[in-house]
Each structure stands twice: as C-alpha cells, then as structure tokens.
Amino acid sequence: MIYSSKPVPTKPEQRPQAGRYFLRAFPVLIFIMIALSAMLSGCRPRAQTARGSITVAGSTSVQPFAEMLAEEYAGRFPERPPINIQGGGSSAGGRAVLTGAAQIGMLSRQPAEAEKELTVITIAHDALAVVVHPQNPVHGLSSDQIRAIFAGRFSNWSTVGGTSERIHVISREEGSGTRTAFDELIMAGSNVAARAIVQDSNGAVREAVAQDKNAIGYISLGLVDNRVKAIEVDNVKPTLANCRAGTYTLIRPFLFVTKEKLSASGQAFINFVLSDDGQNLLAEEGLVTDNQ
C-alpha cells in the first residue's frame, strides 16, 4: 500500500542504506529459493550439462593419469566437449556411472558384482612398487619377506638385512584398488596388520615414506621419484621393461567402465585414450601399455 512512505521510527541517517535494497531483495530471494526447489524436483540437470561436458569419475590412482589425458585432449581438440575428471574412488566411480552422474568410471580393481553390467575397457596396466626411504640399506626383498613385514610378523629391519630399527608399515585403506591388488599379489590370504599406518592415496604413502627412514609402503610405479626408493621384489627390478617382459609381476589393470550406450563425445575421449598418442602419454607417465 503505502509501503515506502511509511514513517520509520529510526532516524533516517541511522538507517543503513543497504537495508532498502536488502528488503526489496528479500521476497525476491524467497521466490528464487522456491523456483530453485521447483526446478530441482522438476527438471533434473543431468551430468551431461554445459556444452555436453563429459564427467569421468572414480579411482584416485587413475585420476592423475586421466587428468593428464584430459588436459592433452582439451589442448588438441578445443572444439570438443570438455572432460571433467573426478576422484572419489573406484566404487564411487562405478556407482556414478550406474546412476548417470558420470559417463565414464575409472577403476583400479576388477569390477565388483554391481558393476558387472558395465562395459569394461582396459586403458593400461600399472605396476606396484614397494618403496622405502632412500637411506634404507635394504635394496630388495622376497615376496615372502614383504608379506611377513606387512602381516606384522617381521617388525625389525635387522630381520631382513637392515639396521636394527622398528619397521613402520604404511598401507592403503581397505577397498582401494591399490590395496586390493596388493592383497591379491602379495598377501595371498594373510591380513595386513591392524597396526599398519593407513594413508588415503598413493601420493600420501609416498610422502609418508619419504619422511620416515624406517617406513615401507607400496605405490604406483609411475609415482616413484627420488624421494623414495623402489626395491627389487624377488630379485627383479621394478621397471617398465621388466613389466612388459613379464618378469615383474606386481601388476594391476587400470579400467574405464561405461554404460553400454555411451555418447559420441564420451566415445571420442576413450578413442583418444586408446590411440597411440594417448597410450604413449600414459607410457611416459610410467604406466605399462601394450603398444611398446
């Protein structure tokens, strides 16, 4: 009615100017809220949104490599829909594909029961390196020794030819692709000791090992740098050549999973990943690919 001409008990100069705008805006804000909630329940924005961008989600082990690929892809084909790379974990990735929140899932383990209906594409293999601090005198261990260390049966470095120090075992969280692969390839039914330190990514394991002279952990071979030392396993050096030759056997697949019907732009990205260029890029980053 006489909305704005209403006398106000406060003195005009005490009334903050911003107040007027805020008051006008307030009903509008409420309206926006209602409109927003209506929109949310009505039209559900799919994962394929702005300019049909593609969401790739899943394993944090695959994530850094996928980010490299996406960056290269965007550089070469700027006109194509952009690729979003998400972490979240293998399971979150599989679930995201099943529910449509992502088009492509990244797994660093074999598909679980619920993920069996998805199309599986192996993009590369990743070698697991067992790493210790660079100053650790131990250069190699047998898989039996590694198992005994991680199971907590060997707790002193002197047992395996090192200095007399307590071994600090660093592992990954249960369920992660790296941990699952390690359990299968090394532990063979034994449990990793409950005492083991658990870190939530390969990068974090590397940082922890780089900090601690008495630590031992396992990470992707591609992540090994000069701050940690990758040791021989059963007298075989962890190198890409040995992986390809089949002598170094701590290897697991990196997988993409999709629904049966994948959009053309999603398929285009997968084609790029599987092309020679894509595979070379992965090989440069330390993954084991088929084309070399």
């Binding site: 329940s41 979240g88 995201a96 449509g100 992502a102």
Partner: peptide
C-alpha cells in the same frame, strides 16, 4: 543431492 536428485558432483 549428487545421487538422489541427480545433480552430479556440481
């Protein structure tokens, strides 16, 4: 929000 309302990570 992400799964049930299908807004994805956004």
């Amino acid at each position: 929000f992400v799964i049930r309302l299908n807004m994805g990570w956004s």
